[in-house]
């Protein structure tokens, strides 16, 4: 379990904090979606949850980030990387650039941990299998589609053996096929018992995979609950968040006094 307790965070060189008193819990095997308007603080929540802020990028953290009972600030970054990892939106900047094959790229993390060769090999194979990309193993990581590249990046994180995975807009740069690939992979990941935190603008995608959704507005968590309840909340648009298509349709029908989707005979 990863918990943010009363977290306040200010970037280095800025006068005001970006996050205020944020409480957020990430339980094992759970996919939590994080939504909010642009510049509301979603990416900052990701950086803080993964421990990169303040450990790598500086700034000032108030409150506690606790992983399985231990405060992140007491752990060195490479130590932290075995408990929580973070992925970003651009597959190409997440590539190490020093691997000739996808297998080597995914193996880089475990290798850095100083694991014996046999363990590195085993973890790499397991990560590729979990995301069902064994067939990419011998490909050049620089020559993959966006979706494949993002899966390789996530596999690279997975091989670190973390229980918590934070992904900041993992499908932003992908086409619909790539987004679907990643969404399916995230479901597989959660089944392994890992806890996932995902920032995403595509409400339909979150609607399909999340157990819970939290809404960030101006650096505060303003709503946190089961996916259906949060994504169906009337206030969502006011926070700059797009409701999923099914919610929008249901509302448009209701506004005209028409029966809902289910009554019309539609099942997803």
């Amino acid at each position: 379990m990863l918990e943010l307790r009363g977290v306040t965070y200010r970037y280095a060189g800025y006068a005001r904090p970006v996050l205020h008193d944020v409480d957020l819990a990430l339980r094992d095997g759970e996919i939590v979606g994080l939504v909010g308007a642009n510049e509301a603080g979603k990416s900052t929540v990701c950086l803080v949850a993964s421990g990169l802020a303040p450990a790598s990028i500086g700034g000032q953290l108030g409150g506690d980030v606790v992983i399985d009972g231990e405060r992140t600030t007491s752990l060195p970054v490479h130590e932290l990387a075995q408990r929580v990892v973070i992925g970003f939106q651009n597959p190409s900047t997440q590539r190490s650039g020093v691997a000739a094959t996808v297998f080597e790229e995914v193996a880089l993390g475990p290798m850095n941990l100083g694991l014996p060769v046999a363990e590195t090999l085993a973890r790499t194979r397991r990560a590729l299998a979990t995301l069902r990309i064994e067939d990419l193993a011998d490909r050049d990581p620089a020559r993959l589609s966006g979706g494949q590249g993002q899966l390789v990046a996530i596999a690279g994180l997975l091989a670190m053996g973390p229980r918590h995975i934070v992904l900041d807009e993992p499908t932003a740069q992908l086409d619909p096929e790539g987004s679907n690939l990643v969404a399916a992979a995230l479901r597989d990941l959660a089944r392994t018992g890992a806890a996932l935190l995902i920032v995403e603008h595509k409400a339909d995608l979150l609607d399909g995979i999340c157990d819970r959704v939290a809404v960030v507005d101006a650096g505060r968590i303003v709503l946190d609950g089961p996916t259906t309840a949060v994504l169906g909340d009337e206030r969502l648009a006011g926070w700059g968040v797009e409701p999923p298509s099914r919610v929008r349709l249901a509302r448009s029908l209701a506004a005209r006094g028409l029966p809902g989707l289910a009554e019309l005979g539609w099942t997803a």
Binding site: G36, A37, N38, E169, G240, V241, E242
Partner: peptide, 9 residues
């Protein structure tokens, strides 16, 4: 519209 929120779109 990539990366845009509700208002951006």
């Amino acid at each position: 519209t990539t990366g845009q929120d509700l208002r951006g779109v």
